[in-house]
Design a protein around this nucleic acid. Sequence first.
DNA 1: TCCGTAAGATACGGATCGTATCTAATTCCT
DNA 2: AGGAATTAGATACGATCCGTATCTTACGGA
Lengths: 197, 197
Amino acid sequence: MAREQRTRRRGKELETAILEAVWTELREGGPEAVTMERVAKRAGTSKPVLYRRWRGRAELLVAAALYRLPDAEAVPDAGTLRDDTVSLLKLMRQRLLTVGREPMLGILTEVVHNQEVNEKVVKQLIGRLRDLMTDVLARAEERGEVTLDGLDERLRRLPIDLLRNEFILNGAVPDESIAEIVDMVFLPALAGRGMLR
Amino acid sequence: MAREQRTRRRGKELETAILEAVWTELREGGPEAVTMERVAKRAGTSKPVLYRRWRGRAELLVAAALYRLPDAEAVPDAGTLRDDTVSLLKLMRQRLLTVGREPMLGILTEVVHNQEVNEKVVKQLIGRLRDLMTDVLARAEERGEVTLDGLDERLRRLPIDLLRNEFILNGAVPDESIAEIVDMVFLPALAGRGMLR
DNA sequence: TCCGTAAGATACGGATCGTATCTAATTCCT
DNA sequence: AGGAATTAGATACGATCCGTATCTTACGGA
């Protein structure tokens, strides 16, 4: 907002202020309110400063999303594959809600035109969770719950994919949905592939 | 395009011409070429005519998408649940590609704050396919391939959900993805629930 | 202290949005 | 058939936003 003219920010401090401004705009006016002009004014700076850092609106939105996204820490060991998967999905849900449905759609829309940004988003928003799922499955194998022989990417990503789908479609993911994804789909699929001990 | 000034279209005829113009722009210049100004010119009319029918670009895109969507006919009986499901997913893919990824995201965005459009979209884009899936499963049961005892909504929608997810994320769905969804996830999940004979 | 870098202000051309206003064509109604 | 009501189509407008260029000036490092 009205920034004191006293000092002139630089580097990380300035960048943070800009990304915070993006979120303020998002909160107050939704994705369409995120324009370079508004964000610049809101952050108490000017457009050229933004364009020195990001190539355009798309990159700025992505940066803001990633900035807010807490680092996906490890999934605590709940003792069973079932509960670990539920934990992972709840972690993912929290991350999605942090970003919000409309901003997420906005990002996806912007990202469509930019292969580079697209890959970045996919990597950060999906890759990390996929890795956590890999950890969860590895843990389950150590416990002797499953054999991962022939486990494929498709199956590994299954719970994550279903959760994302539900979030994008409904904007919310109740606990029951998470339970259903795990108990009615994921675990049965593993069983059907002969992977459950 | 250059329209003959001879006559002045009205009602449905005019509306159709406008929606066709949207698709022409989409084809030639991609989604960003769909501006109210261009569409109006392309259709040989003017902006106010567009705004008398749709509240803005978003609604126009939704209308154009639904206009082009062929009625999802029945899925031909391929003889097995597996092949029927693949057929259904290919039909769905064709529908999604007809609409296009960006318009689809536009629709989803629109849906967030427009209850009316929401119901229309859910009915046209989701409900119909779900019904076709129900048919496919019923056929499989008649054949004796599966028991549908305790079949839940979640499982019934599984292939559809996964395909939609992949389309939104990648904008394309190769044949292998469809095969994977059916062979690595859907059928195993049915088997794991004890539904496959 | 001085110099290079980058912040911040301003302005620009171009595109688009959504609306207001006006006219004339077409359809409807009597 | 003819007048009234409707609405297509043309045009112009203010506003907003994009991305860039230019200029001044504050800050930080050597």
